[in-house]
Write a protein that binds this DNA or RNA. Sequence first.
DNA 1: GAAAATAATGCAATCGATTGCATTGCCGCG
DNA 2: CGCGGCAATGCAATCGATTGCATTATTTTC
Lengths: 346, 346
Amino acid sequence: MKRNRAATLKDIAAALGVHSSTVSRVMNPATRDMVGADVAARVLETAAALGYRPNRMAASLRTRRSHTIGVVLPDITNPVFPPILLGIEQVLAEAGYVALVANAGNEPTHQQYVVEQMLARQVDGLILATVTRRDPVVERCLEQGVTVVTVNRTVGTGGTGGTGAVPGVVSDDKAGMELTVAHLTGLGHRHIAHITGPQNVSTGMLRKSGFVKAMQARGLEPVVVAGAAYTREAGKTACREILDRFPGITAVAAGNDLVAMGCYDALAEAGVRCPGDMSVVGHNDMPMVDMFSPPLTTIRIPHHCMGARAARLVLDHIDGRHEGSPHVVLQPELIVRSSTAPPRRA
Amino acid sequence: MKRNRAATLKDIAAALGVHSSTVSRVMNPATRDMVGADVAARVLETAAALGYRPNRMAASLRTRRSHTIGVVLPDITNPVFPPILLGIEQVLAEAGYVALVANAGNEPTHQQYVVEQMLARQVDGLILATVTRRDPVVERCLEQGVTVVTVNRTVGTGGTGGTGAVPGVVSDDKAGMELTVAHLTGLGHRHIAHITGPQNVSTGMLRKSGFVKAMQARGLEPVVVAGAAYTREAGKTACREILDRFPGITAVAAGNDLVAMGCYDALAEAGVRCPGDMSVVGHNDMPMVDMFSPPLTTIRIPHHCMGARAARLVLDHIDGRHEGSPHVVLQPELIVRSSTAPPRRA
DNA sequence: GAAAATAATGCAATCGATTGCATTGCCGCG
DNA sequence: CGCGGCAATGCAATCGATTGCATTATTTTC
């Protein structure tokens, strides 16, 4: 029958006949040497004996530092996010921080609600994977001086790098499309279509403009079909449209892997063979796309690294280290598998 | 140039010439009617004007309720966990709670560390997806009277239901194997092997014993091969072993879908065709297994529901509602796709 | 040997919200 | 008219840890 209240600084202090402030100093390694070595030793000892665990909430209230970072995702079920989250957590953990994670969907009002909840819990910063090019949530955070970093996507229309107003870590989406087009034209394709992602998010816009630019640089006509969303369903619909309206097309550059999956669905339905009759390239290199039939050729993005860098960015910002560029652009890589082949008649 | 400190109860109180306790009562809907309607209205009004956001940390310190639940996962990168997390979050959000999520791997010392971090942040309860049948982390939590619920796995060896000492939400693993064996024998298979998961976790043990029981009930010889882990690599190794040591086997019941993926690898390598020469059944129905070649026949587990029920269980426990059984066993479902077929010569 | 510097520790306010209890004012009822 | 009772609000302690300042005890220095 033990005490059921957890031990506090005061309990330890009382047990040793010292003041709680002394115990506090011992507990913090940075101030430990302010107190005598013998006392410190005894404090540590009884702290262990009592199973003392500091109440970080109380500390946070006083210091205004919660050592907690809010991570806002649109949908953890999308396989690109788990590796990002993993990277974030590893870096945070090393620094003694933890992540408050929430799925906020795509609705700004709900996203705002989620962010409010996090702010009410005094998070020291936010990592947003939900941002649109012009994002009301980000704007509110900026107004209030909240530290915020974007990941995977960026705010602003700008070039590859974004506006710079909000730090962020992204893949070089334009470069990714250049790789895609280079690969496809290298195989002999000349009639290539791109199924876009949503144009209100940076990835959707940059991949599209990257595609157009890469095609034009080769003197080819870019065919662009709008995808309604980054989903399998949207990919299927868009691919059907290509099959109907652009019979000459021999290759599809999908906005991402989910969209590519939808292409597979549409092609199978229409009896068009991949890669025999139609090549498909994805974007993201989600786990398991190598198991598909055929294994998907796609653009690999360093997701884990992306999360890690984003976490480092927030932590740096919190500690006042505004070192280097606030914007990190990672280079993607082409992974050639079996969904691409030379066009039937070159 | 506004104030940079966030508005507090006192600020509102000062602005209206009332006491902060009055403001506090207005802010809490439950105590709102203790104060005059006119005053309440004015308080609400200036709170909005000042952009007041309650500091939940301060409230938590006083009330000893953080409205935060710790969720401990072995690896968010495993596709079974995101839907569970989604289910958890939805239920928590409805109740005004948020989730503190951490990947803790499989090492008990690191898991313990992660749990300590969460406890230090005063989580109101824990949902553990990491538990082994005899779990040191759970035992420590129990000692300290921490509310804990397991999900996906359960502690204890017991029957399907587990020991009952720790509430948990699981799929009926034995029933899942019964479905698998019934399906396979229904196709005409008589020589079936099972690649187990780790035997120190409940799913590994229950699926194995479920398999053995289902086979014996049909008078068939159960062939069991130990898988080193729930990974693609372990599945590949174990499947090779089956090919080598048990040439008569015509079907494999894999411990989970990742293991089934490994089987695909081993079969492809050995030039054994699936489902022609060898049928494969998975377990979990991870997203995208329908894209595999061939699409995987597997056991579907209601992951989302599992997470939701687990969250409800913690919340009930926190609110002192120990209603109903602390153990929830969900029924799995067989999803027949194309990795299973009658054996070559029945 | 006395003054000054230094080390070790105690004191008390503070962070922001909550809540049991005390106080004030008003109303109704006999 | 006076008192019980109720409604509305103020008061102050509290949650647990942190930290600037004050107070001792100890050492150094001249």
